[in-house]
Every structure is written in structure tokens, then in C-alpha cells.
């Protein structure tokens, strides 16, 4: 009898671990071919919040977002701007409903982000750290 409970407990703990792994950190990335040398956290924040349109060297920045509800997205904005998904939605609602701007283009997942970065050296995105490979350069 108690054995089945112990199994359940182990499965439960394992699920927690899996959840932890799935929640691995997001990293801000640009294409490996990108001319952008380095960007501060504040600059990346301003680019993703639509406040900064160009990189410091004058190239037009093209931020790529992941879809709402994606754990990588939630983690990225929590670490970058200390914004919860609700705070981010409130922030963009303010801008959208006054016609002053719009959020970055959105893609479905990190693989799509890498595809966009490969196609456009001026693009900037964020992916789960486990997706980092030679095609991208990690900013932070």
C-alpha cells in the first residue's frame, strides 16, 4: 500500500524536475553573422518594448517575439524588465489602443526565432538556452 504512495511521490518529484528543466533560462540572441557587437540589457529592453528603433550603430532593430503563453517569453520578460505576462499585456494595451505603436512580430517558438535571425542579421530574439547553437550569438 505505502509503496504506491511512494511511487506517486517519486513521479510527482520527477514531474517537478521536468518542469524545472522545461523552465530553463531564456537568453537574448542575435545571428552569428550579426554586425551588432554588444547591447546592454537596457537597450535590449527598450528595443523589445518598442522604445528604441535602432541599434547604437544606427542599424534598424528588428525584434522577434515568441507567442503569448510561451514559457520562454514569460521568462525573458520577467528577467529583462521584471514584467509578468499580465504587466506586459497591460503595457502593450496602452500603446495599441492609442494607436501609437505595436508589439514586435511574433513567431511560434525558438526554432522559428533562429530561422528569422538566420534570414535577417538585424533581427534580435530570445530563445531557450538549450537551443543555443553556432547559428546564434548570446548577448546575455
Amino acid at each position: 500500500m505505502p509503496a504506491s504512495r511512494i511511487y506517486l511521490l517519486i513521479i510527482g518529484l520527477a514531474l517537478c524536475l521536468v518542469a524545472e528543466v522545461a523552465h530553463a533560462d531564456s537568453v537574448a540572441v542575435v545571428s552569428a553573422r550579426s554586425p551588432i557587437a554588444s547591447l546592454s540589457r537596457d537597450q535590449v529592453t527598450d528595443i523589445f518594448l518598442g522604445k528604441l528603433s535602432h541599434y547604437p550603430d544606427g542599424i534598424l532593430a528588428v525584434p522577434i517575439d515568441q507567442e503569448e503563453g510561451s514559457p520562454t517569453r514569460d521568462d525573458f520578460y520577467r528577467r529583462l524588465a521584471d514584467k509578468t505576462p499580465a504587466q506586459l499585456k497591460a503595457y502593450w494595451s496602452k500603446i495599441i489602443f492609442t494607436g501609437r505603436g505595436r508589439p514586435p512580430d511574433t513567431v511560434a517558438n525558438g526554432i522559428e526565432v533562429k530561422r528569422r535571425l538566420a534570414a535577417n542579421p538585424a533581427a534580435i530574439g530570445y530563445i531557450d538556452s538549450t537551443l543555443v547553437d553556432a547559428s546564434v550569438r548570446v548577448l546575455f
Partner: peptide, 8 residues
């Protein structure tokens, strides 16, 4: 094409 700047 305005939107297709990113490729895909």
C-alpha cells in the same frame, strides 16, 4: 512584402 522582411 512589408511584413516578410524577416524571411519565412
Amino acid at each position: 512584402p512589408a511584413k516578410a522582411a524577416g524571411g519565412a
